[in-house]
Computed example of a mutant assay.
Amino acid sequence: MFARLSGLAAALTLAVPAWAQTEMPFALDWKFEGPSAAYFAAIDNGHFEAEGLSVEVTAGQGSLDAIPKVATGAFPVGFADINSLMRFLDQNPGAPVTAVMMVYDKPPFAIVGRKSQGITDVASLNGSTLGAPPPDGAWAQFPIFAAANDLDVDSITVEPVGFPTREPMLAEGEVDSVTGFSFSSYLNLVRLGVPEDDIVTILMADHGVDLYGNAIIVNTDFAAANPDAVKGFLRAVAKGWADVIADPAMGAQAVIDRNPAGDVDLEQRRLQLAIDANVATPFAMENGMGGIDDARMAAAIEQTKLVYEFQNEPDASLYFDPQYLPDAADRMLK
């Protein structure tokens, strides 16, 4: 993939000086929903502007979407699953992209099913039908989840589905469960009229999956040339998250201002779910958001080895670079 896009990268290299000083377009992983509120708050509340940055947020099409965009230089910064980044870098050695700020300290990878379809716990997935979009970050981690829980994967029928049809198929009973992010699939089902007491959310992180989740990623060539801009971007992002943690209603409204077709109450719930389960973890609240624990990262790599054969020796320093993180005081969430 990276090789095919190298021509675009070369062309964009010539354009870097034109926008490197102040403009930092940001590639999201997904649509404008509750968890994207922090980035809009950082715009609306002047945090990016205070850092001398002009930031435009662009929606994505899945957890893998931002990685090649940032690797080619089409975007200097993005938001992506760090586990997918590991595999991308293994398959594209030397690609100029790395993670610089952990956001989902506890990943939202989940299996979301319906009791009426027989899904009540992990064991009930055996013999069921699972809907999974091939580019989905949660689906990418399913083999680790399955191995950690001794699932009989041969008994599970996997139905490839598209992102737009994932929850509707579950709502219609065409599949028994789906892979997805906990806060997205759950509330999408609610919006489709599925009773909340019929929905079961199995968070992989609660069942043996020790991975990290989505992080801010950066083009390393851009970062090397613009270290202060990258550090300022991360400082503004942390302030944006602190803002929406303090006032989720404000954050939800910031999302609806960009996505008028959305439901402000639903997006506030989605944002709160992400805050409570994925962002404001005990580690992040104590140490400030953005950093990682080296021992946990090493364990995550070892766990990934159980289901993915690295072509090159994995190296945590390739996947996460903490040098651009602002001081901890500037990353506190309260």
Rank of each mutant, 00 (worst) to 15 (best):
K231F: 00
T157S: 09
F283E: 14
T98M: 03
P96F: 09
F48H: 07
M1L: 13
P322C: 09
L53A: 02
I119D: 06
R269K: 14
S36Y: 10
P135Y: 10
E49F: 02
G137H: 11
I144R: 13
G262K: 12
L189M: 09
V70I: 06
G288N: 02
F32G: 01
A215S: 13
F310P: 05
Y324T: 08
N92C: 03
A254K: 11
Y212N: 04
V255F: 03
L130H: 10
T157G: 05
I301V: 10
F145H: 06
A328L: 05
V97Q: 04
T72A: 15
A38K: 12
A132C: 14
G137C: 10
V178R: 11
D136S: 14
E313N: 09
I43A: 05
F222R: 08
L325E: 11
Q268D: 04
T157H: 08
G193Q: 06
H207V: 01
L89E: 13
V57P: 00
A316T: 04
D263Y: 03
Y186V: 00
P134D: 07
S155I: 09
G251A: 09
D150A: 15
A171T: 10
G94R: 07
L89T: 11
G62R: 12
V158T: 15
D263S: 03
D197R: 11
D121N: 15
K334H: 14
P68M: 08
D152H: 09
Q21M: 08
D315V: 03
F145I: 06
L333H: 08
N214A: 06
A146H: 13
A74K: 04
G137V: 07
N226F: 00
D81V: 03
L64C: 02
Y212C: 03
T72D: 10
Y212D: 04
N45V: 04
D197C: 06
V244A: 07
S184P: 00
A3I: 11
M289R: 06
P260F: 00
E286L: 07
P143Y: 02
S6E: 15
G208K: 07
L12F: 07
G162F: 10
V100Q: 01
A252M: 12
D327R: 05
L170E: 04
F310N: 04
L5D: 10
V279L: 15
G94Q: 07
D90V: 02
L192G: 00
L14P: 00
V190D: 01
M250G: 12
T58A: 07
Q117G: 08
L14W: 08
A41L: 09
E174L: 15
D105E: 12
A224W: 04
V237H: 10
A148G: 02
R235W: 00
M169Q: 13
R166A: 13
D315Q: 05
F48G: 06
A329F: 00
